[in-house]
Nucleic acid binder design. Sequence first.
DNA 1: ATTGTCTATTTATCATATAAATGCAATATC
DNA 2: GATATTGCATTTATATGATAAATAGACAAT
Lengths: 247, 247
Amino acid sequence: MSQDNLPKERPLVPEEGGNITRRIVDQLGRAIVAGDYAERMLPIEAELSDRFSASRSVTREAIKMLTAKGLISSRPRHGTSVAPEGQWNFLDPDVLRWLLSRGLSLDLLAEFTAFRSAIEPQAAMLAIRRGDHKALEAIEAAIEMMERVDPHDRPASLSADIDFHVAILLASGNRFMVQCRDLVETALRFSIQLTDLEKGVDVADIEAHRVIANAILAGDAARAVSATRDLLNEAAMLIERARKASG
Amino acid sequence: MSQDNLPKERPLVPEEGGNITRRIVDQLGRAIVAGDYAERMLPIEAELSDRFSASRSVTREAIKMLTAKGLISSRPRHGTSVAPEGQWNFLDPDVLRWLLSRGLSLDLLAEFTAFRSAIEPQAAMLAIRRGDHKALEAIEAAIEMMERVDPHDRPASLSADIDFHVAILLASGNRFMVQCRDLVETALRFSIQLTDLEKGVDVADIEAHRVIANAILAGDAARAVSATRDLLNEAAMLIERARKASG
DNA sequence: ATTGTCTATTTATCATATAAATGCAATATC
DNA sequence: GATATTGCATTTATATGATAAATAGACAAT
């Protein structure tokens, strides 16, 4: 019963977020996924320490954290190098955030949307099967918030949108899907930059969300699945259009 | 084009796998997910170092790696404690392995199978849509290996089974689904303990895999999706039966 | 009861030294 | 000349000891 879902107050951009280790992890992580060290080795520990004006211990701890996320690997005498992309932990919220922040990569956003197209419809189905009253009420509360909020208040709209999708993931009761919470939040926070450009879709968007909520609350699994899939297909098309527009 | 998919030669059980840090990470990680420190704090760094006969630096680096996986968090004067389960990175291969190894928890295996039920059918669909010849050939090669291998050779059968599912994930071309590779491998390596108990399902199992392969190679998305879903439902039922049997 | 201060404890950081691993070149051996 | 061996240099891995920063909890003051 450890449904302990405190919101993390960790800042989205911890450039200066408290301790030095965290700062190095963030800056190095960004640089690595941006491809800065795709060909060459990372600087040796001593130089990295200099560059970040930190002690070697702190630098090493940061390196270990990045290693834990699959981004790099170290060998004595050889140095530290970026791991092949196949070993990166794409499903780590930090890694995803760094990936998306390297210039709003539409390719990756499209792939993640396809991933969501797999997860969220199933989560909706599981939510129905599980039938946790509290969790279902949270979905209803989230959709009502979406409908109530001022559509011109972008941050509030975004939060409501995120809360809705997260509520479905939580209601699934599946810990792996719940884990996708941070990922979905991260991705949505970036994709807002897209929908900001495309105006006028908001009303239709909220209605599409309402359809999902109603289907879940009515226990109509088939409709919940198809409605969720429709919504994400719509998002995918939006991304596709942006991709074609930008090149 | 960084399709660099070298198999990691990292041992599945790195109790003695080389460096001290890795050993501490593994032992502590196991203990944490097993609930050993669910109520109390972790020992202070000095004591942990003593317990593992390691220096404080190494202990701290191990702690940082576990922090990176969301398992623990530290605060000055307060100590280090296990993070709420909602913050654990369930989608990290190490974490999943530690979770499953705490006594083959059937609940978690069931949840992961539900997760796979979301991912793998979509991956099969994407594989068709993408139509990468090399990747599709790998699927055919994998299913042929499954059919060819001696069914009594359990390790070989398991490897072939894993390779088949991994081939589909790879063929999807979706980096988030590809990332599930290690997770699926880990889960399958544990679930073999179940199927070992239930004999006689193997032939039917291979046929079910063949149906999936044929559907994908024929470009029949609908059939590929439903066949994959069927296979995983079968696995889910197997787990459910084992769960009822054991309590 | 609230607020401020002080103290002890623990993590965070720094600095330095030594060990272990290993790529590479020089050397020895055949 | 080809190949195996050895030694050196470089880098991470580990150890050690010290100081800084943060803060929970006790205590004092208001």
